[in-house]
Simulated assay, not measured.
Amino acid sequence: MIAILLFLAFTIVAGLPADHILIRPDHELRYQHVEGGDGLYLADLWTKLSDIQDAARYNPDSQNVYHLFTRDNPSVSQPLLLGNAGLLAITNYEPHRRTIVLLHGYQDNAVGSLNAVLVPAFLAAEDVNVIVVDWSLGSNSVNLATSVANTVTSGESVARFINWLNQAAGVTAGSYHIVGYGLGGHQAGIVGRNVDGDVAYITGLDPSFYLWIINSHKFRPDDGSYTEIIHTNAGINGYLGTLGHVDFYPNGGVNMPGCNGATCDQERSFFYFAESLVSGGFTGRRCATYAGAMSNLCYMWGNLRMGGIAPKTGSRGIYRLETNSRSPFSRG
């Protein structure tokens, strides 16, 4: 799809306007408010020629930035560079530890709320390597379609980085937990399907909804050995239907207690997940469908814990749970 759009961008006749519309999604208003790193942004959902040209200029292999955090450097990161084994050798990276990869969302960066919440939570829960990916040069286009296209190329690039790191350090994909939020939620799946070997655990935190319904690159259940989705703004900024081996719909997946808008709803996904890493809790009851989870009509047998440090490999299904309006959010 991306190759076709690039071909169109460079072969379209010279007489067309500079911002000729290439793709106009059916049944979508052109401008929608979409959750970003620090609030709602008015995003353009139509794809113009200039947007494809912008996406073509983004080179994640050289423009993505990788920040390493460990218990030895919990607040000041150490840089990692694709192909630079010498730099890797002088960092606190340890191959015997599990490695966590964190992917931010639209209009965000490495120092946004996602990483401020999850980096300390992971380091408190376990002695791990935490790699924060800053792909803000790809995610922060005003045009959402450009950022969606860059989500794919960035994910493929992050997978190349992981493949290089694994070869350099002598580790496998089985020691990884990849976590993404919003656009990064889908990118986490893209990374998983492009890494050599099976990633042990992939978590999508309220993966994005706009422009992903029929997108062939969206999160897939088999992107990792165990894949889990936490929906907190379903059908608005977050994806409505199921995407993983297991999908959780806290409070029905929308209108989180204690929140008064879409941004707060979406951010609850990583606050709930962070709490699950440190203290557990969040037991969901099984539902037959996501519609049942959203309408609180869940009569199937079986419970499952949401989130947590360890993958629940082999688990499947849709689950609903209730939360408190403030921390601690878990009701057990």
Rank of each mutant, 00 (worst) to 15 (best):
V130G: 06
V76N: 14
V111N: 13
L88E: 03
L82Q: 01
V152N: 06
T70I: 12
K48I: 03
A121L: 00
R71M: 12
T99M: 02
W135A: 12
V111D: 15
L68V: 07
V142D: 03
V133F: 12
V142K: 02
G112Q: 12
P60Y: 12
D134L: 15
N92Q: 12
R71W: 05
R57N: 12
I52Y: 11
L82D: 05
L102E: 02
V128Q: 00
I131F: 10
L144A: 07
V152W: 02
D51F: 00
A85L: 14
T153C: 06
T146M: 08
V101M: 07
T91P: 09
V133S: 13
Y66Q: 11
D72R: 15
V133D: 11
G155K: 04
L144P: 07
S157F: 09
V76F: 15
D127F: 01
A116C: 09
N143T: 02
Y93Q: 11
A124K: 08
S141V: 06
N115V: 02
G112A: 11
N92R: 09
E94I: 04
N92V: 13
L123N: 02
G155H: 03
L114H: 06
R160H: 07
F69H: 07
A89S: 00
D127L: 04
Q63T: 14
R71F: 08
A121Q: 01
Q78G: 15
S75C: 13
Y58D: 07
I90Q: 00
V117G: 08
S75K: 14
N143H: 06
N64D: 07
V119G: 01
T91E: 02
D72V: 11
Y93W: 13
F122M: 00
D54E: 15
V133A: 08
S62R: 08
T91F: 09
N140F: 10
V76A: 15
N59F: 06
L102K: 05
I90A: 03
N143Y: 02
P120Q: 10
I100H: 09
S136F: 10
L68H: 06
D134E: 15
L137I: 15
G155E: 04
N92A: 13
Q53T: 13
L68F: 11
Y58P: 00
V65P: 04
V76T: 14
V133Y: 09
Q107N: 07
V128K: 01
G138F: 11
V142C: 01
Q63Y: 11
L102W: 00
R98Y: 10
L137G: 14
S147A: 11
D108T: 09
V117W: 13
V148R: 09
N129E: 12
A125P: 02
Q63H: 12
I162R: 11
A145L: 08
T99H: 05
S75V: 14
D54N: 15
G86P: 08
S154F: 10
F122W: 06
V111I: 11
R57Q: 10
S157Q: 01
P79T: 03
D108H: 15
S136M: 10
K48Y: 05
T153N: 06
A56W: 11
